[in-house]
Every structure is written in C-alpha cells, then in structure tokens.
Amino acid sequence: MSIHKTTVATTNTSNPLSLFSRFHVQSVSGLIGGALIIFWLVMAVIGPMVAPYGANDFVSYDVFGPMSKDYLMGTDYLGRDIFSRVLNGTPYTIGVALAATVAACTAGVVSGLVAAASAGWVDAVISRAQDALISIPSKMFALIMVASFGSSVPLLIIMAAIAYMPGSFRIARALAVNVMTLDYVQVARLRGESMAYIIFKEVLPNMFRPVLTDFGLRFVFIVLLLSSMSFLGLGVQPPDADWGSLVRENISGLGAGAPAVIAPAVAIASLTIGVNLLIDSIGNKSAHH
C-alpha cells in the first residue's frame, strides 16, 4: 500500500509548473516546443489586447503588402495588418481547439474508465458505439455535421469533441484494463470501495502521463481539423476569423507571394510542431526510464 500512496502523492501536485520538472524536459527540442506552447497560450489570452492595430482596421492602402517595421507580417487583401489579425485569431484557433480537446478527452477517458470498470455488456455497448464513430473519417464527420447544422463555434467544439472522443476512449480503456488487474485495485475492491472511488482515486492517477500525451496529440489533430474546416470556408465564420480563415481569405495573394497567406499557416505549424516536439521529448524520456 505504501507504494501506491507515494504514486498518488507525486501525481496529484497542483502546481502546473511541476508538470515540466516532473517530465525532466531537458532536450533542446522539448524546450523549444514548450516555449512555443507557452507563447501561444499567453497570446490566446492577451493577444487581442497587445495587437498593434484593430483586427478590422484598414491601416494601409497597400494590399498584400510586404513585411515591414509597421506591419510585421504584411497587410491582407483589404489592407489590414496581418500580425494583428493573427493575434486576434489566437483565441479562436487555440480556445476552440482546447475546449474541444478537453471535452473529447474527458468524455473519452470517463467512458473508457466506466467500460473498463464495469466490463460485461456495458463495456460491449460502449466499445461498439465508439468503434462505429471511429469508422467515420474525422473530416467526413465534420462535413456531415456542418452540412446538417450549419457552422458555429459551439457546433465546431461539439463536432471536434465527438470526432476525437473514440481515440481517447480506446487508449483510456486499454490503460485502465491494465491498471484494473493490479493488486492495489483488487484490494480496494475487496475493501468495498465504490466504483467512483476506484476510478478517480486508484486508477486515474496511474494513467496520468499517457493520457496527458494523448491529450497533446489530440489537440494537434483538432487544431488541424478546425483549421482545415476554416480553410474550406466551413469553420469559424466571418467577421470572426481563426488562422485557417486568414489563409483562406488571403489565398488570392499567393500568386504574388504575399506574407499574408504564409504567416497564418506558419502560425498553425509553429503551434502544432511545438506540441509534437514536447510530446516527443517526454516520450523519449519515459522510454529511458
């Protein structure tokens, strides 16, 4: 029992910074990834406030202008400052994706734990339903949902959450089934603890790291899906714009090689690559241990 107590103690620390020290992020690529993520998370909160111009201000007569001191990422097809528009799009790209990822992982992990803990027909029914959902490619599911309900921010969150829940479910269930067979869970069962106690106090803390890695991967998938939908004109609707919408509305500047097309796409890439770098360095470290 003492072993079990110490694992719970180390995984339940509430200080968010201890997350990094716990995973011993020492590699350079991991640090770069972490820095990129922190930068964009901060920008998701303060981005619209620190933007040099308003998102809808026409600041220049020069459409598809080059990068300059005044306009860091050039100007767009209407002469608006792209840097300010990227910063104003941050809450949409990151906020919507983060909300959807939290919803997908919570639903996936909870249903995975319930399936693993109850076994039998409950497990069979949940697993079958999740298998059917995973058989619809995510972009296809997104198109069907938007065709049926129209595009809005709440729908995008729900859609992405449903599309990426089954993957999270599979991983959580597989992990939980393993943990369930360990001695201390058997002991807790014999003690007569409730299912909620076993799930949240015994099993969940011990699948924390793989679930967190999965959360990061799923966030990348969802950012890519939502950006693609916006790029197709089926995601965040004008006058609001996320980074995918910015690429779409400036695509006519591609022939002139305008930074207005490339900058928002590079912003997406820096976010998703950052998350992948951090996950990779965590994965490598855990493989060494």
């Binding site: 950006s227 693609s228 796409a265 770098l277």
Partner: peptide
C-alpha cells in the same frame, strides 16, 4: 516526418504553389 504530419495540408500545398508555380 514530424513536420509533415503536424502541419496542415494547405501549408504544404501553398508552399508547393509558391515554389513551383510562382517562383
């Protein structure tokens, strides 16, 4: 490979257009 799977397809496509069609 990490780069290719973590960037959106439209970034790869726009870079390809920029290089092969525009430049």
């Amino acid at each position: 490979a990490v780069f290719a799977v973590s960037v959106p397809e439209f970034l790869i496509a726009t870079i390809a257009v920029l290089i092969f069609a525009v430049k």
